[in-house]
Amino acid sequence: MTAISHRAELLAGRYGFRHAARMEWIKLRSLRSSVWVLATTAAGMIVIGIVTIAATEAPQAAAAEPVDPLNNLLAGLILGQLLIGGLGVLVVTGEYSSGAIRSTLAAIPNRRLLLAAKAGVFGAAALVVGELVTFGTFFAGRLALTEAVARPGLGDPGVIRALVLFGVYLAMVGLIGIALGAVLRHTAAAIGTLAGVLFVVPGVLAGLTGTTVAKFFPTMIAGNSLAVTEPADDVLSPWAGFAVLCLYVSVALAAGGWMSARRDA
């Protein structure tokens, strides 16, 4: 479709998800801040992961549990989810703070459709970055391991699943950021809420109750269930954790769409 016909359909009110997604993709790739945040996330997580993997040591005792170098991919998890989740918030709230939301809604008045397009475009971009980071760190980290530590391979049990789900998790955190931005429409409040859900609340609960409740929070699911070849004791299984995260994202986006619809009324 040519740019002229695309513009004509929008002016005639005949717009759909494809038009909204195209508009959101243009905005996302044209903002230098978005590109730099995604690039910083990728570079930072890969460097942190490689450095941590390189420091992995073999178990000292013969009876010790075998070392799982894949766990060290999580070294950059805090940085990655905070940057991608924060960028997800800014994708929504940035337009409100700058006033650009007026022109966006003039082109696509349907707020639910607009939110779906933002989530689809940003979620896809975050997924690509997440998978590149995960597999890039894995292959580079293998080369950084000492000879005393067995190098994990893609054919080892649980490795492919852990790598793929780690990348998916980062995209899910970005979608939660999108939803919080739509619900709160205030950058500081949304990022503060995101940080509380990811770090503060599960940390406090882990100190008070162990994993009984904390294991249901996103960061605990990622660190103990998804991105490891062998889940820790007394936590959710990888696929149960993935299902819980899907539920969180669905509820968050549904809440964002509901709040957007209320503002249409």
Rank of each mutant, 00 (worst) to 15 (best):
S33H: 06
V37H: 04
L38T: 06
T52V: 03
R32D: 09
A54N: 07
G49S: 14
A39C: 08
A42R: 05
I26P: 03
M45L: 09
S30M: 14
A39I: 10
A43D: 06
I53C: 00
T56M: 01
L28F: 15
A39D: 12
L38M: 12
M45D: 07
W25T: 14
S33V: 08
A43K: 13
S34K: 01
S33I: 07
I48R: 02
G44V: 05
I48L: 14
S34I: 12
K27C: 05
A42W: 07
G49Y: 07
L38F: 09
T40C: 07
T41I: 03
L31I: 13
R32G: 15
L31D: 06
R32F: 03
L38R: 00
A55W: 01
I48C: 05
L31C: 08
G44W: 05
S33M: 02
L38P: 06
W36A: 08
I46V: 15
Q60K: 09
A42F: 11
L31T: 12
T41H: 05
I53H: 01
S34G: 02
E57P: 00
I26M: 11
T56A: 01
V37Q: 02
P59T: 00
G44A: 08
T40H: 03
R29G: 11
R29N: 11
A58C: 04
W25F: 14
L38H: 02
T52E: 06
I48S: 10
K27F: 14
M45C: 11
Q60D: 12
W36G: 05
K27A: 08
I53W: 01
V35R: 09
P59R: 00
G44C: 05
I53P: 00
A42D: 10
I46H: 14
I26A: 15
V47G: 09
S33Y: 03
R29M: 15
E57T: 04
A43H: 11
S30Q: 12
I26F: 14
A58M: 05
I26Q: 13
A39Y: 14
V35T: 09
L38E: 03
W25G: 12
W36R: 00
M45E: 07
V51I: 12
A43V: 15
G49C: 09
V47Q: 03
V37S: 04
R32K: 09
I50N: 05
I46T: 14
I48N: 09
V51F: 07
T40I: 06
G44N: 04
I46A: 06
R32H: 13
A43P: 10
G49N: 13
W25R: 15
E57C: 00
A54W: 04
A39T: 14
A42H: 11
T40F: 05
R32T: 14
T40Y: 03
L38Q: 06
T56V: 09
I53A: 00
A42I: 11
T41Q: 05
R32P: 15
A39P: 03
Q60W: 11
I46K: 10
G44Y: 02
I53V: 10
S34N: 11
A55T: 05
I26D: 06
V35S: 04
R29K: 15
P59K: 00
A55P: 06
R29I: 15
K27L: 12
S33L: 01
S30E: 15
T52H: 08
R32L: 11
V35Q: 06
L28C: 13
V37D: 02
L28M: 15
A43W: 02
T40Q: 06
S30T: 15
K27M: 07
A55S: 10
V35C: 02
T40P: 00
S34L: 10
T52W: 08
I26W: 13
